[in-house]
Amino acid sequence: MPLLEGINYGGEKTAVIFDIGAVYTKCGFAGETGPRCIIPSTVKGPKKGQEVNICRSTDEKELYDLLKSFFNKLYFRHLLVNPKERRVVVVESVFCPTVFRDTLAKVLFEHYQVPSVLFAPNHLVALFTLGIPSALVIDVGQKETQVLPVFEGVLLLKAWQALPVAGEAIEKNLEAQLLEGCNVKTAQSTDKPLSSLMVRCCFVTKLSRAKQMQAVAQGTGDTGQELTPPPGIDYPLDGSTVLHIAGKIRETACEVLFERDAEETSVATLLLEAIMKSPVDARKTLAENIIVIGGTSMLLGFKARLVEELRDLREKPRYKERLFVDAFKFHSPPGKENYVAWLGGAVFGALEVLASRSVTQEMYRADPVLPDWCTLHETEELDEKASLHKKMAATR
């Protein structure tokens, strides 16, 4: 049973909150301070023993079967609740593929027969954890980094910025460096080449050191000055197999986030571009209310480096003459970055307004087209269609 069951209205049972990520899925109950479980977004596929990521399926029929199996595991193994008795809040990206969104709704309404579903944008619900109406939210996840301003509760979609650089890019960069210069030692004391490794021992270095390393790599720095690398570590793989990771690799693996590409874009420039595309009177507020979410942002030193990058870029001609922002201030949400969006959904799921903003079972049967978060008139139209559907059913 949820710990805070009593905060709901009308005697309803606590809503269930799902946040399906590209790598991990968070699930739990509304009103709680953290998800009940964080599990990989995978399920056994048609082939025996094969684990399939539900977010990577593009075939609608296959996706339906995968989601059906995945939610069976969530409901009956981890949450232990009857899906027919609880409303659902799905925390999603604003740019979630339509086929995934529609198929998920079909699974929840038709197979599990949930009472209602609310699809809530992760950038918006992150603000609920702090009780503020405006913020610049940066989501550094697995596939990409997205920046979206929220001003007075409204998503400024025209200022949206994204870059396909996040956790996956770090893993590829780390893997390339490890494969190039690292071997593993086994119990027989023989060195074997490495095939892959998870990111667990890397960190984001300071901007000053990053500039020095870049100058040395380009041959423009002081050749007589050597940078002392951080200490290497021994990473146990499986029992007696140990990988030694050089300190230089630990320090440089995450630089892919801040290296500017051919278009001079990086994770830091996304924030500045999003601010400049926002209304002038909202820029100061957004710069002083920055929220960082996403699992990749939990890397040691990430926030400190991001602040340094923003301050450094602010002095560049492109931004100095147009930005007019004195300071950048970051919020500290009451939870880890990887589940802040889920926590915002849990806060919203405990509110009385949840019922009026959700798509109910009757509304979905009347018209399976899902309305957007802020499209109130579409929700009203669905209410009318659902009411008409009930009257027609009663006269049959």
Rank of each mutant, 00 (worst) to 15 (best):
F151R: 05
L104D: 02
Q142P: 08
D59L: 03
V90C: 12
V94P: 08
P133D: 05
L104V: 05
F128Y: 11
R86E: 01
C55V: 10
Y112C: 08
E51T: 12
F109Q: 04
K68N: 07
F76Y: 15
V154F: 15
E62C: 08
D102I: 10
C55E: 07
S93N: 03
C55F: 09
L66V: 02
N53S: 11
F71Q: 03
L108A: 03
A105G: 12
K84V: 12
P121M: 07
F70P: 01
L67T: 00
L66P: 00
F100V: 10
L130A: 11
N72S: 14
V52P: 00
E85F: 11
V94L: 12
V88M: 10
T98G: 10
S116K: 00
R86I: 00
P121S: 07
N53H: 11
Q50W: 08
V88A: 09
D65K: 13
V88W: 02
F100E: 04
V150R: 01
C96K: 09
Q142R: 13
E62R: 09
V114P: 00
A120D: 05
Y64S: 08
E62K: 10
D139I: 06
T58R: 15
L80T: 13
V140H: 01
E92K: 05
H123N: 09
R87M: 10
G131F: 06
V52Q: 02
F70M: 05
V140F: 02
L66A: 05
I138W: 06
V114G: 03
F76C: 14
S134H: 07
H111R: 06
I138T: 09
S93I: 04
R77H: 15
N82K: 14
E51I: 12
L118I: 03
T58K: 15
Y112A: 08
V107S: 04
S116W: 01
S134V: 04
G153I: 04
T103G: 00
P83D: 07
